[in-house]
Simulated assay, not measured.
Amino acid sequence: MKNVAVFCGSSNGQVQTIIDQAYELGVYLAKNSLTLVYGGSKIGLMGQVAKGVIEKNGNAIGVIPDFLKTKEIVHPDLTELIVTSNMHERKVIMYKKSDAFIIIPGGFGTMDEFFEIATWGQLGLHSKPIAILNMNGYYDHLISQCKTMVKAGLLKAINLDALIIEDSLEAVFHQIHNYEPQPVPKWLNIDRV
């Protein structure tokens, strides 16, 4: 594993613990020679993760759609900046450049990225680890909703179990390093996707 995508908010939010933990995630990546792949911004939680990486001399690859370059304010000290034509292309490039995905607090954009990459995994389009780093209990309700979906028979338990869900950085990376992918669904014909 060399590159880790982090999906998170372009705002800091109001919980200092989460802001601090986002920065510490960046520090951890740099200290463990893992390249950050993220949305390219210098603001919000995205900026905190990048700040942690860059301040510890790590590598950060930013991927941003052209129309967001001004709004999200591109980080000036990135190792590499990739400008895409749209949001979907952004997600595809982040997927291709990453060996694992970590979801930390964010809003609709983060949820979109999480659910799309989780769905791609469910469909067998990739077998890369996906981790929810549940900072400060931020995703407790989302995790509960996923369990409700399983109970209702609308999500298979095997697909929920394929996600790494942990409250600490160390536990997330322990699980990522020991990740064993689920088998590709037998009903899926990759050639038709």
Rank of each mutant, 00 (worst) to 15 (best):
V4P: 03
A5Y: 01
F7E: 09
C8P: 02
C8K: 01
C8Q: 13
G9H: 09
S10T: 14
S11I: 09
N12L: 15
G13Y: 10
V15I: 11
Q16L: 09
T17E: 15
I18D: 05
D20T: 13
Q21G: 00
Y23N: 13
Y23A: 05
V27M: 10
L29T: 09
A30W: 09
T35C: 13
V37F: 07
Y38W: 04
G40C: 06
S41I: 04
K42M: 10
K42S: 11
I43V: 15
L45I: 03
G47P: 03
G52N: 10
K56A: 14
K56V: 01
N57I: 00
N59R: 13
A60C: 08
I61T: 10
G62R: 02
G62I: 06
V63C: 03
I64C: 05
L68Y: 09
L68I: 06
E72W: 11
P76K: 02
P76W: 02
L81D: 11
T84Y: 04
S85F: 00
N86I: 00
M87G: 00
I93S: 01
Y95V: 04
K96G: 07
S98M: 07
I102R: 04
P105I: 13
G107S: 05
F108C: 04
F108P: 02
G109D: 10
E113V: 01
F114Y: 11
F114C: 06
I117E: 14
I117W: 07
T119M: 12
Q122I: 05
Q122F: 05
L123Q: 12
S127Y: 08
I130R: 08
A131I: 08
N136M: 00
N136D: 15
N136C: 06
N136P: 05
Y138K: 13
Y139E: 11
H141N: 15
I143C: 09
I143Q: 10
S144W: 05
S144I: 03
Q145H: 14
T148M: 14
V150C: 08
K151Q: 11
L154Y: 13
L154C: 10
K156N: 13
I158H: 11
L163I: 06
L163A: 05
I165A: 02
D167T: 11
L169R: 07
L169T: 05
A171E: 15
A171W: 03
V172A: 03
I176R: 03
I176S: 01
Y179T: 11
Y179G: 04
Y179R: 10
Y179F: 15
P181G: 01
Q182P: 00
P183R: 11
V184P: 05
V184G: 03
P185Y: 10
K186I: 07
W187V: 08
N189G: 00
N189S: 12
D191N: 12
R192K: 15
R192S: 14
V193T: 01
